[in-house]
Amino acid sequence: MTREKDLTRRRFVALGTGAAAAFASSALPAVAQENWPQRQVIVVVPFTAGGTTDMFGRIFAQAMQAKYGQPFIVENKAGAGGTVGAGAVAQAAKDGYTLLVGTASTHAIAPFVYKRLSYNPETDFQPISLFATLPNLLVVSPKMPVKTFPEFIEYLKQNSGKLSYGSSGVGASNHLPAEMIANITGTKMAHVPYRSSGDIMNAIAGGHIDLAFDNMTLAWPQAEAGTVRAIAVTSKDRSPTAPDIPAIAETIPGLDVSTWHGLFAPAGVPRPIIDRIAADVKAIYSTPDVQAKLKAVGAVASPNTPDEFTMFSAAERNKYRDIVRSAGIEPQ
């Protein structure tokens, strides 16, 4: 064999080896996507255990673990209105093994109430699917002499600066309604942040704070038990769970501060994995038992597609941007 032919043969061998290696490397991700999940999946809940967001995350994790036989571990990373946990997931590997239960707080409100975020809610995440939507419920201490929203407003005006309300932190979905009402009525209330909705309800029952605009999932059962008094919901319409409780919009037309919970992955996770998880969420949250469980606590199961959730999230950011500005909340 001549030297020229030998060099040509070696080049073809090298090209063939390189092509095989390239094919193998391109095929591996596809196999990984097809076989997902092959190991433990972390589902980050950016609030403490026992709260509303935690409940939605555990419904999803338990059903997924039962289906796939792999551990789906709920990991609570609370702090700064959910932004600590969200920031951690934004930096996670883009392989579908770390997911986030995001909320209106983390993905629609935070950009407008925090001067610095460790993540961009629009570009650092891939929305997968909504879990559910729900209103907040205005609840007050049973010791407060009000039973209707107009009575509450009058009492608030008479006691401006004397009442306190609880929330999960600045920018949380249970923080904005209180600031909006204070701004609309020209009154002041002391803001007391807590780590969870359970802590807020305990604080009202214990007489440590006067009221809260908290998620119905925990607030409504407490109202039914008599530990707090339900006054009104923050959605534009009454809740089918508590049809006798009026909407604030019946007194203040146009007011609508509902909240939502959904599943996100770090941006860049392969689309086949995203689509598979979205299909699983739809199956889980479409079952009659899950829908009944959610309705009992004031939530409405609302699974959708990744593209629909992306558009929904963008619209919510625009909506809450305007709400934050109208409430006069300064970024911190």
Rank of each mutant, 00 (worst) to 15 (best):
P121C: 11
T123S: 15
T123D: 15
Q126V: 12
Q126F: 01
Q126H: 04
Q126N: 14
S129H: 04
L130R: 03
F131W: 07
F131Y: 10
F131R: 00
A132L: 06
A132Q: 04
A132V: 07
T133L: 15
L134G: 07
L137N: 01
L138H: 01
K143C: 14
P145Q: 10
V146A: 13
T148M: 06
F149W: 08
E151F: 11
F152W: 10
E154D: 15
E154Y: 04
E154S: 15
Y155S: 09
Y155V: 11
S160K: 14
K162P: 09
S164V: 06
Y165C: 12
Y165Q: 13
S167D: 10
S167E: 03
G169R: 00
V170H: 10
G171Q: 02
H175F: 13
H175Q: 05
H175E: 08
P177V: 00
M180I: 05
M180S: 12
A182W: 00
I184D: 03
I184C: 10
T185H: 00
G186D: 08
G186E: 10
T187L: 09
T187D: 03
K188V: 09
M189D: 03
A190H: 14
V192R: 15
Y194T: 02
R195Y: 10
S196L: 07
I200G: 00
A203G: 09
A203V: 03
G206D: 12
H208I: 05
I209W: 11
F213I: 00
F213Y: 08
F213W: 07
N215Y: 14
M216F: 06
T217Y: 06
T217F: 03
L218W: 01
L218Q: 06
A219Y: 03
Q222L: 08
A225I: 00
V228A: 06
A230L: 08
I231E: 07
T234V: 01
S235F: 08
R238G: 01
S239I: 02
S239K: 00
A242F: 07
P243N: 10
P243C: 10
P246Y: 00
P246R: 04
I248G: 10
I248Y: 04
A249Q: 14
A249G: 14
A249P: 06
T251H: 13
I252Y: 14
G254F: 11
G254Y: 15
